[in-house]
Write a protein that binds this DNA or RNA. Sequence first.
DNA 1: GACTGGCACTCGCGAAGTGAGAGTGCCAAC
DNA 2: GTTGGCACTCTCACTTCGCGAGTGCCAGTC
Lengths: 339, 339
Amino acid sequence: MSDDRRLEILRAIVQDYVRTSEPVGSKALLERHQLGVSAATVRNDMAVLEEEGLITAPHTSAGRVPTDAGYRMFVDRLSAVKPLTRAERTAIERFLHGAVDLDDVVTRTTRLLSSLTHQVAVMQYPSLSRSSVRHIELVPVGGTRLMVVLIVNTGRVEQRVIDVGRDLTGQEALVADLRARVNGTAVGEALTAVPDRLVGVVDAVAPEDRPVASAVAAALRDALEEQAEERVVLSGTANLARVNTDFPTSLSAVLDALEEHVVLLRLMGSLSSVPDADRVAVSIGAENPYAPLRTTSVVATSYGVAGGLGVLGPTRMDYPQAMAAVRAVAHYVAEILDG
Amino acid sequence: MSDDRRLEILRAIVQDYVRTSEPVGSKALLERHQLGVSAATVRNDMAVLEEEGLITAPHTSAGRVPTDAGYRMFVDRLSAVKPLTRAERTAIERFLHGAVDLDDVVTRTTRLLSSLTHQVAVMQYPSLSRSSVRHIELVPVGGTRLMVVLIVNTGRVEQRVIDVGRDLTGQEALVADLRARVNGTAVGEALTAVPDRLVGVVDAVAPEDRPVASAVAAALRDALEEQAEERVVLSGTANLARVNTDFPTSLSAVLDALEEHVVLLRLMGSLSSVPDADRVAVSIGAENPYAPLRTTSVVATSYGVAGGLGVLGPTRMDYPQAMAAVRAVAHYVAEILDG
DNA sequence: GACTGGCACTCGCGAAGTGAGAGTGCCAAC
DNA sequence: GTTGGCACTCTCACTTCGCGAGTGCCAGTC
């Protein structure tokens, strides 16, 4: 029962392969690791690992390379998320604390993450799922036109200018009344709950004001929908090109896929929605539901409750390091967005 | 004096090389173009063109390839911007008119442009240079905190929450007064003029309200500065990878450069600030001031007055097509942003 | 003087060949 | 279960080589 040793060998193969990006053979393994056995024994174990589908040989007389399943085993059972150094933590903290607004937080986060991991960083904008209305503003902007501004607790702002079909000059009282009503109904509520509640507002105003009220309600629904349309930001795509030995033909396919933000959103959504808060999710190669990304791995987690962030790179990735960076960055981002 | 024929040959070389991406020789040229002379004559002319630095031979027995100077000559004197077909125009119009807000306009524009030209599309957000204030809103958000919202005529919104050091509960009159004052001073004014004018506002309020007023003014100045910090959006970076024969080693350097938005902004700024409104500017290869982009060309113009847009690709680019697309798209974008 | 046909020459590129080296599987011995 | 040894396999880097595209030049023609 040399099960333990075999796994130790798998771990060594993964580590060496990630480092050198070259298939690793039995001899090379012995040079770099004190396994306490001979090359022949390593070869026997490697044969078993290959049978189990954890490693594979690109061709007869080359070394072995981990399969997706091998990486999976490595991530699940053979690696610990290595804690960052104190210096790294303070560097992260300092860099992120310089951010002035939400956009800046997102930009800085993705840059930070891509430079820490040398992979492509992906971050979802805080989403509507747990967001709420902070304030709604109504501003007459001349004649029959009214500006409707929706401000969300995550700091996002959405605005619309609508035509209410009625001259609002000198109608400050009406506007103020409406403003008070919509704010009274919506502020603090989850974005998802607001559309329903707006119905009540329209019903409650004087009949002659209904058209104006319902125009406002329509604009707000529209703005809310826009908020629901989530966004995602990338950084470090150049890192993909740098390791283009890992993407024989499909580099441009991967780059294409990265411009499909809808796909990335779904990906981040599914990976970051795990119940366990501190958990970092990993999707490896063929595990990926979206075909063009089958040659890549994604390491992601959620920051706080409102969205996900992570990195994407070749399956040949330094998982422990990526997981540590993603977790630490998510931690600080959550802290900043809460404050 | 066979100057005309030589230029005709240069044009043919550029066209063929752009199409095939292979060096073009005298014979191949005769097959595809009716030049009315023999191969030997073409060779003589080619030798002259090479002396003039307009074309070059990658190695002794290959065909010729245009130099940056050759492309420059082609763009300046040998090509007409080919008008788009009516079908293309309506397609552009339809696609852009579906946009719901500024973000959407920018996103759609870059996507459209990159798919039309198969290059990387770049678009500057409307900048402050000619923007003005549409509205400023002040909203107490509990206790001593006040939200300041700045809305710009291009549709951009910036907001800050500040602590005014004084409990605003029940102080609606003060807030309304301040709101009226700042709006009276700033609305319609160019963003660049607002900071100076705010000084007068602070001076004009009652002495006990000065701290609140200057806190608001500070927040607005900050927000204006943020607006000044321009943004740029990309699309179609995968197109670069697709033609990676054009970027022997430097693909990742180019991708890196594209993430340096500051550089792109300066680039777009200088190219799109030409006086002539309908002019499309072209920067070819080594003409580019930023070293990593010396292997690329940029075709850009301004849309309306507030910013630039364009495409970036290898110097081996279909300039007439790119110029036509850029000009047409800029035209429609300007129209949309005006309305 | 401009153009043309012909010719000798150059040189990159792909195909084919080759040797070295890394790596394997298997087996007999411990 | 482990080990040393050995025969075998196969890729990779390197070299050689012939083909063909392309050139420059020159003498001849209009």
